[in-house]
Write a protein that binds this DNA or RNA. Structure first.
Lengths: 361, 361
DNA sequence: CCACGGAATGATAGCGTTGTCATTCCGCGC
DNA sequence: GCGCGGAATGACAACGCTATCATTCCGTGG
């Protein structure tokens, strides 16, 4: 049972604190780190002036700037952004939530995001949510990351738990969802339609004369939507899927190779294999090579992502190109604009995609 | 004459104005976010009790905990770690500095680091320094990251600029350098000897009967030290390098393929190619396949890193295995121990390496 | 000469949390 | 009955910085 809180006579708060002279009973919590106040004292200016020299030097007289910077260099002062962020309500931190960075199609996007934000003096905290199929820790991560008070949030995908979505909404922070599209973004979305990719791939392969189309997919939600688009396209052409093999995300060469082997061992008669990633497709090429399956004459292979290596496999892999760097840059720019309170751009940006035909189709 | 009438509202104003009564001349800086004090008021306890419920619930009566947590859930309170970190001098942040995450051998290490730290309620801020050859921004990053007051720093490599090293030293923060060895770490080092790897690779290939050994290397400092070890080994066996091709980091399949093509076009007579990464080796395999060079009968290929795909290439790639996950986990554990002030473990940990023989050698 | 305005700088009061005692309550042993 | 110790809770003052005025100092035009 709950104890009664002791009622102590609250003494009225003094209007003004007595001169700070010495703490009566508290040990100082101070550390040995150089603070802005130290710099100010040495330079013979007020703390606020040092703050201005660091953050907005154009407001301070050039001589003062030089003088203060000399002291900063000499003392090795490093600003404390925890304190600065607390006071200014600007953490200069952007949170990025991605499923994974291992073997990942997202790293280029993150790289561009980071680079663009770095120019604007922002840093990125990366959160890896894991794939939903493995028990996503997205909710816990969203909480953890919001407690850092990021000035903006970047998140892969548009399907978040009710709770995550609510938290992001109530945080009153610019949010950009990427690598997908939706008509009802939390805030902004920059991506492309996975269904359209699937459909375009289906139309493309059927157009090239392939009729028995199998697939190798990761059990990732976006990948499965591409497959859905593919199946619908095939259906429109009066075709069905000539076998499929599902692999746990993330995508690896090994996974693709094993999945394709399984497909073959089940006796598939496919004349084309569509993969949910270039890594899978690369695995298919490897297994085909081992088994002496001629590509593309006996079997066409199509990847997704158009990663750097796609052009250099043997034979060169056809794939679906996504502007991965563009997504990162656009996301950074959109977030920065929102942070600065600039007029809002479009809520939804479709960056599209492009089928790159090489030697495997 | 810079008289400018405000055409647009210059600043977004506070959402709500607290009826704080005695505001003599200052506008309130309050926001609409729920604070610990709000929770305390609603729950009828003191702020410090709420703090304890969040951070050390074992100190608080179970009923009080339940009561406060109910209020937290209802109000959607999210702790402000900027404030918490400022007050407690614990940011619960670990900085990780890596050259890159693109096509990178480091991602598994980072993944393990992040996972292990996550368990202990720490988060990782990632800084990408770029490779030295591209004009490393390590110094700027070190400053930027230290201003976040991380509780620990993880950094790839042991050769830092004088300035970076000094800053890290004076920050009085646990530091672990990884992926390399040195006898004079900033604080701790967990890695392996690149020279030894090179030497072991040389001995291994010579032992297998190869005599004309060429190489494909990234112009990364650690890679070049492996090469140095290789050359020394060859010299001990009375051999020289049968050609080399240097490629800009980071390692990609394309880079390896082109480098090997260049080597061939220069008319190399190598019977083995040592690569500074599996990605390069994969590229060599691709080019060899195109040119009909039988592997390993006419040419042996050896990678480095033993990435996931190495076992699945055709033919399966021989490589040098590094315990990438182990380095990340060990680093996290060492840093956590140091943060908690536990007795210091060894300053230098050599995780070693292992040559994995597959089909290409 | 003087009000006026802009440039430069400063004083004050927080920002939201936690470290450091301090206090209250209660059970227990003598 | 009383002192003691531990459990539970609280008051207060930082932590290091910046937002928000306020002030000082000049040069200028009327």
């Amino acid at each position: 049972m709950r104890r009664k809180p002791p009622v102590t006579a609250p003494h009225p708060r003094p209007e003004r604190r007595a001169p700070r002279g010495r703490g009566r009973r508290r040990a100082s919590r101070s550390t040995n780190a150089v603070t802005l106040a130290d710099v100010a004292k040495i330079a013979g200016v007020s703390p606020i002036t040092v703050s201005r020299v660091v953050n907005r030097p154009e407001l301070v007289h050039a001589d003062t700037v030089a003088q203060v910077q000399r002291v900063i260099a000499r003392t090795g002062y490093v600003p404390n952004m925890l304190a600065g962020g607390l006071a200014s309500r600007r953490s200069r931190l952007v949170a990025a939530l991605v499923p994974t960075v291992v073997n990942s199609i997202f790293v280029d996007t993150i790289q561009s995001l980071t680079d663009t934000l770095w120019e604007a003096r922002y840093q990125v905290v990366l959160g890896m949510t894991g794939y939903a199929s493995h028990g996503s820790r997205e909710e816990a991560l969203v909480s953890a990351i919001l407690s850092r008070r990021p000035d903006a949030v970047f998140v892969v995908g548009v399907n978040h738990s009710r709770d995550s979505r609510r938290r992001l909404l109530t945080a009153h922070v610019p949010v950009v969802e990427v690598w997908d599209l939706t008509t009802s973004p939390i805030d902004m979305v920059i991506g492309f339609s996975h269904e359209q990719v699937g459909a375009a791939v289906g139309d493309y392969l059927v157009g090239k004369g392939y009729r028995r189309i199998a697939s190798v997919w990761a059990d990732d939600e976006r990948a499965l939507r591409r497959r859905k688009g593919l199946l619908e396209s095939l259906a429109r052409h009066g075709l069905g899927e000539a076998g499929a093999s599902l692999v746990p995300a993330p995508s690896t060469l090994r996974g693709g190779r094993q999945a394709f082997a399984a497909l073959l061992d089940r006796g598939t008669d496919a004349d084309a294999v569509v993969c949910s990633s270039d890594a899978f497709a690369h695995g298919v090429l490897a297994e085909a090579q081992v088994r002496g399956i001629a590509i593309p004459s006996r079997l066409a292979v199509l990847g997704f992502g158009d990663l750097e290596f796609a052009a250099e496999t043997v034979p060169a892999l056809s794939s679906v190109r996504i502007d991965r760097h563009g997504i990162g840059r656009l996301a950074a720019e959109a977030l920065l604009a929102r942070i600065e309170g600039k007029p809002a751009g479009p809520k939804v940006v479709d960056v599209g995609f492009q089928i790159i035909e090489r030697e495997t189709t």
